[in-house]
Simulated scan of single mutants.
Amino acid sequence: MDAHRSGPPPAPPAARPQPRERGAGIPLGRIAGVPIYLAPSWLLLAALITLTYGQILTVRRELSLSTGFAIGFGFVVCLLISVLLHELGHAVTSRRSGIGVRGITLEMLGGYTEMDREAPRPGVELYISLAGPAVSFAVGLLAAAAAVVLPGGGIAETFAFQLALSNIVVAVFNALPGLPLDGGRALQALVWKASGDPNLGRRVAGWAGRVVALATAAAVLILFERGIIDGYFGVIFTLLVAVTLWVGAGQAIRHGRVAASLPPFSARDLARPVVAVSASTPLAEAARLAAMSEERQPVVAVVDGAGGLIGFVHGASARAVPAERRPWVPVGDVTRRIDPQHVLQGDLRGTDLLQAIRDDPAGDYLVVSGEDVHGVLRGADLVSLVEPRRPTVRRKNT
């Protein structure tokens, strides 16, 4: 359906699209307007690293236990900041590419940046994907430079060296060509560029991610068996990373299969027309006006005295009203008000559209383009198109 200005007036300012914020994790604040969250799982990792690293320093440096733990905790904080800088690399490049960022979550095995939509072109995908490892590598080089100029053999020099090593390992590991790693996103972009099919790229990178997961698990077990890795903590942690990679790769493969089967409709194409009435209009009268409309399956929209759009008649609530009472029940009693989370841009399609309605897949959404109102998308309409095509079988960094 083409954009138009007739019918109900544009949504009031309160109903304009706004970025959704994630609610998971402990909120740490904002950086450049991006919400930052800390997953509770990170606290477990912080405790393990603090205890392990602190005990190693206590033995090797002959420090008191409290001093060793304090230094260990300081190292954990530096690692957290390093992961945050890595994710900010993705967030900043995403924004520069015109893609909004919902938030950054720091968790036990790294972190992830949640974006409003997927990259529109393979070049943009490649640019955003490699930004994180580039930042980690730069931080590693700075820490290595600090280790060089600091007095040799001191705690500060050891601390800087460990920080440099961890950041460079993170940069190199994340650049490996397999989803859900950043290198997997880069591989996806290259296959997308060569084939013209982003979903093929996602599936190829997903299978490559499974290979990386198996190789990671095999490598750590071989190194442990040969005595190169000493201690169970590193082995268990690396195996956990490998399992996470395997799961993420499987999700990417399924995502690629489902996305390839999605209908090529945009939110604008799926939007139903609206019939505008006042809140005091009897439910029976609103139903009669909708039935008389020449448009296909219109949705009854409620407007205020100034003509501003308030919300839509909730289908389930309206059907629950007995037929004999509908001439006396005003539509305002069965209206669901519009909120910013139920406003969609008309050009959304495919997986971006599914992502936009994931929190309320059965809800009604106002579809707009700027000041133009296209109509109402009912989540159930989209779900009914997707589910028959679904096979029977969050950008995340580790």
Rank of each mutant, 00 (worst) to 15 (best):
R336C: 08
V148I: 14
A145P: 05
V83F: 00
H90K: 03
Q18E: 12
V331C: 08
G25L: 07
H86T: 00
V393E: 04
G346H: 03
S317N: 13
V300N: 09
L45E: 06
N167G: 11
G54K: 07
G184E: 14
A215C: 05
W328G: 10
N174I: 07
I56P: 07
L150N: 08
V343T: 14
L130R: 10
A14M: 06
G231P: 06
L385S: 11
A156F: 09
V334P: 15
V331M: 10
F159T: 00
L163T: 04
D197P: 10
A24H: 06
G346D: 00
L85S: 05
R296Q: 09
I310V: 08
R60S: 04
A267D: 13
G346K: 00
M292D: 10
G370E: 05
A164H: 01
H255K: 13
A119S: 09
A252I: 07
S166D: 01
L348A: 01
A252V: 03
G206I: 06
G307W: 03
L221T: 00
R319G: 12
V204W: 03
L130W: 04
P12C: 08
V139W: 12
E371N: 07
A316C: 12
L344S: 01
T158C: 01
A32I: 05
A286C: 08
P198H: 14
M292G: 02
I81G: 02
H90L: 11
A39H: 14
S82T: 01
Y232M: 14
T238A: 10
L377I: 02
Y365S: 05
G375A: 01
L181C: 06
D364R: 02
